[in-house]
Design a protein around this nucleic acid. Structure first.
Lengths: 230, 230
DNA sequence: ACAAAAGTGTTCAAAGTACACCCATGT
DNA sequence: ACATGGGTGTACTTTGAACACTTTTGT
């Protein structure tokens, strides 16, 4: 039963917008699609969905991400909430932005086609509807800060990855180039990566060793007060 | 006119909760009050208010902060949005948390009494209603990160402040002690503080020189690519 | 044999950290 | 005169940044 005081209040549409990011060939990609209803039908947009009363916010995000990528259990973080009065021209909508990091190898191309969705290089994204460009900018800023201090970048890579791949990922996020030796030294001395016996020969003749991220070791480090930093 | 697709969606109560922080005598204080309606009437709570359709989120925060402190134009930042289904036992409410930093010297004691509000040491805050303790924890974490990289701490101090005061502020935020000489060296070499001729004699016989934060100088530094860091 | 990416250490500069004494003033 | 908090500089350690050559292997 709704308390009396609440009933005097106004209600609002609440949506989530998802900044779904993937990484491939040294570049960050954003999943965008054409908006399927008015206003701004046909324009490029982030993936979004309205909050339902039987869902928490993160459940709404999971639903949207699953719908557009076919992937479950993705890493996600809240970016912020956008509540300007006129931000959605259709109606007053308060939107909570989340970013999700996915491994593009898990991505289902068919799901993509169904929704007219496509992967666009983050650096080449054009005008999106409403304040979605702002959401993307805010995401990149958060991602840069967060990847520098927490090992979340691995969510954008397959379970097994090579150090050149990992370095390329950081270079794509920071939009800079890093020194190979310094990068390897720093990431390896944290001892959170496990070297595998196999090599990835897809990008060189010599091949690069695969590594995996060892979450247990990382958690142990945290216990001891060490911090991830790159 | 509301687009058709929107009309099929559910609407929700949207509120803001404000983590209003002040600084005095070397300690951080949080403004809390007794909840004035059910559920959990009489329990300690953050300051909050429901979003109205003629307000943006930050306008709602400003309204709430003004109502409980009598202060306008406060520094505020979004902390995050809390949308678990059962977080508010009364009804489904999506709440956006903001923290606000205020100069306690500007604070109007009368406003406080009217609302049964009081300042509680952050380190001694007990159980608050719903997920308000989580909001406070998230705020402190954000505040620590943010004050280390941006000059926002000054919002908690009067326009004129002393270096011992400023150091005590950082010590309260980080819950640590800092070396006096290192602290002064670092903050002064940024050249964003203006030394005044007057001294504050309230806390020592010798007196400590007042300083003011020079925002123009700070902005110039930003232009040149320098960053604030402590 | 050569092209192309993977892998490897050392030196130098900068920043952070630790540390102890004198100063000014009200009582 | 003394107690109290304000103010100051240097040495050492740690961290970050720059930098070039050898290895492997498919063609």
């Amino acid at each position: 039963m709704t308390p009396l005081f609440y009933r005097e209040q106004e209600k609002f549409y609440v949506s989530v917008d998802c900044i779904i990011l993937g990484f491939k060939d040294g570049k960050l990609y954003l999943l965008i699609s054409k908006r399927k209803f008015e206003p701004q039908e046909g324009q490029d947009t982030l993936m979004g969905g309205f909050l339902r009363s039987d869902e928490s916010l993160s459940e709404t995000v999971s639903r949207v991400v699953l719908e557009y990528t076919g992937i479950q259990d993705v890493y996600m973080e809240q970016v912020g909430t956008y509540g300007e009065i006129g931000r959605d021209e259709g109606e007053r909508v308060v939107s909570i932005a989340y970013y999700a990091l996915i491994d593009l190898e898990m991505f289902d191309e068919n799901v993509c086609e169904i929704h007219n969705a496509r992967w666009e290089e983050v650096e080449k994204v054009g005008k999106l509807v409403f304040d979605h460009n702002q959401m993307l900018r805010d995401t990149i800023e958060i991602l840069r800060r967060k990847t520098a201090t927490q090992p979340i970048g691995f969510n954008l890579l397959p379970e097994k990855f090579t150090l050149p791949q990992l370095q390329a990922l950081y270079e794509a996020i920071y939009q800079t180039t890093l020194d190979k030796r310094n990068f390897r030294k720093k990431i390896l001395e944290m001892e959170i990566l496990e070297k595998q016996d196999e090599k990835d020969k897809s990008s060189s003749k010599r091949g690069a060793f695969y590594y995996t991220f060892n979450k247990e070791k990382y958690d142990q480090l945290l216990q001891k007060g060490y911090y991830f930093s790159l």
